[in-house]
């Protein structure tokens, strides 16, 4: 599991790869939150295209980042979830707080 972070203007782009569970989420959370505190973006993009497995810890990760971005007056977008990850996101209703973007939209933030 790893996360590659880049920023462009007001956008913080986090490309996550590997498996997200309760164990790995703690590391992801710290890396993303450190970058958010430093760069104060208005949009946080979480690119899930490289995520090969996710349980509800991934939903918790998005919910927590949504809370942080709300305090900054910003938003969260979820990019490119694979079908298995998308199934869990749909079940959780996470799209009510974070927009799920197809690949072409997400790429434009890079």
């Amino acid at each position: 599991m790893s996360v590659t972070i880049s920023s462009k203007g007001e956008v913080l782009y986090c490309s996550i790869s590997g498996e997200i569970d309760h164990h790995t989420a703690a590391h992801l959370r710290k890396k993303i939150d450190d970058a958010t505190e430093t760069l104060m973006p208005s949009l946080l993009v979480l690119d899930f295209s490289g995520v090969t497995f996710m349980d509800s810890s991934g939903i918790g990760l998005v919910m927590g980042r949504y809370r942080n971005m709300s305090k900054l007056g910003g938003k969260v977008h979820i990019g490119n979830p694979t079908p298995t990850v998308y199934k869990l996101m749909t079940l959780s209703g996470i799209e009510r707080i974070a927009t799920i973007d197809p690949v072409e939209n997400t790429e434009s933030y890079r």
Binding site: A25, R29, S56, S57, I59, G60, M63, L88, L91
Partner: peptide, 14 residues
């Protein structure tokens, strides 16, 4: 609370 979504059993059921 915190970072837990409270979805564990709901996911297992589904």
């Amino acid at each position: 609370g915190g970072e837990r979504a409270g979805l564990g059993f709901a996911v297992m059921q589904s």
